[in-house]
Design a protein around this nucleic acid. Structure first.
Lengths: 231, 231
DNA sequence: GCACCATCTGAAAGTTACTATCTTTTCGGA
DNA sequence: TCCGAAAAGATAGTAACTTTCAGATGGTGC
């Protein structure tokens, strides 16, 4: 059902048709307005029609870009980058370490604003149970991709149980760590409805979570993983 | 979610209440007809109205018993048992093994009929992505409780990174295992309509049960987890 | 430059899950 | 037998999708 719309990643190829660029622009506009409305008036309280109106498209067009209302929030552009970074690790690095390096390199390449937006996204998901369910589905897809990559690296079959356990555990730990990192910033609640852009981190007292926080937490968590999760 | 039966105090009130029995009967009837219809004509192709008609109730009554259509399939009464079984494990057992043993003991204590229904449930879930997502959410919720229990067991705080990593890893492995079990189930189409089933292997023994092979796969995956996910 | 074609877009109506409110029925206790 | 309370039913909504069809638009071969 989830027909992956081939490649819509901006900056992937410089010379794409004008049509493609327009599409990407519309997609970004929808997402941007949707997230703003969700933040301002809540997820359930925002209808697709409102989003469509804000983005100056028709409601039917909305569903051409996003299969469901949830997808506007859920779609994650970082998963493919993660997989690519994982595959790029030298083969003598242990799988768990490879994951750590990949994760760090991807999130380390984010700008502060990108990171702040990601945190906002996570918070919104954490707040709405409906979105949590959808996010889990995406997580499952991520696990499958990682399992495939890990299997190739280790020269095993993708349905090898050890490979699946590895992928599942690593992704699970990543999520738990991310949640912990996001929770650390619970002190700074909702940004005022007026501000269209997400607030710059590092202002007004306590700073928002930094990439470094997440990286160190994640590295530590992976150590626990390799130790067999002793408590 | 469902209100606890509450009136299970023996001797206090001799009558279990005729009303309560009728309620339980109606609930069972809804579930039974729903599962039959889902099996016969598919999940998405079955409307709530059809279920209501088959169970001889009004559509509005359906939602008095089940908050959502998914809940007819998803509602799982075993999660609390699982937590209890986890807590009951001797303290010298490692956390991961405690999870393993808890799951095995719960599934092993099911009656024949409960078992058969559970198998059917799992197969239906494996077939419908929508239900998989809902089931995943339930698993995740259950694991949150598990994390709290694990923290208590180890005498640590619930936000301890090791505890979070443990819970996250277990969730991740559960998700990966579920996907694998679904794939395996899809590969070998079940003799669905017929209720004839072979005797459950290892009923009295401690051998792994095979609910779409989920339980046994999960147990094996947990072993990998404890071994530090070597590949 | 021009016609052809696939794709994107919009309008409108339909389906269905789910909710809210109100009335009727039914049960339990005295 | 009667009364209060809980459950069930009927009805009318809301909003997320879906489908269908007609028209606009950008890319491509000529």
């Amino acid at each position: 059902m989830t027909s992956l719309p081939s490649g819509d990643r901006p900056g992937d190829r410089p010379a794409v048709g004008l049509r493609e660029r327009k599409k990407a622009k519309t997609r970004a506009a929808i997402q941007q307005h949707a997230l703003r409305l969700f933040r301002e008036q809540g997820y359930a309280e925002t209808t697709v029609d409102q989003i469509a109106e804000a983005a100056e498209i028709s409601p039917s067009t909305f569903f051409r870009y996003f299969a469901t209302k949830e997808d506007v929030v859920i779609q994650d552009q970082y998963d493919p980058l993660m997989i690519a970074a994982f595959k790029a690790q030298p083969p003598d690095v242990s799988p768990v370490q490879a994951v750590r390096e990949a994760m760090i390199s991807v999130f380390g390449s984010l700008s502060e604003q990108e990171w702040a937006e990601e945190v906002q996204r996570q918070k919104l998901i954490a707040k709405v149970p409906e979105l949590q369910a959808a996010a889990l589905r995406q997580v499952a897809a991520g696990i499958e991709m990682l399992a495939a990559a890990a299997a190739e690296r280790a020269g095993r079959r993708p349905d090898d149980l050890a490979v699946l356990a590895f992928a599942g555990a690593v992704v699970g730990v990543a999520i738990a760590t991310m949640a912990a990192a996001s929770a650390a910033s619970a002190a700074s609640p909702a940004p005022s409805a007026r501000s269209g852009r997400s607030a710059r981190p590092g202002r007004s007292g306590r700073t928002a979570p930094q990439v470094g926080d997440f990286a160190s937490l994640f590295a530590a968590a992976l150590d626990h993983l390799e130790d067999g999760l002793k408590l």
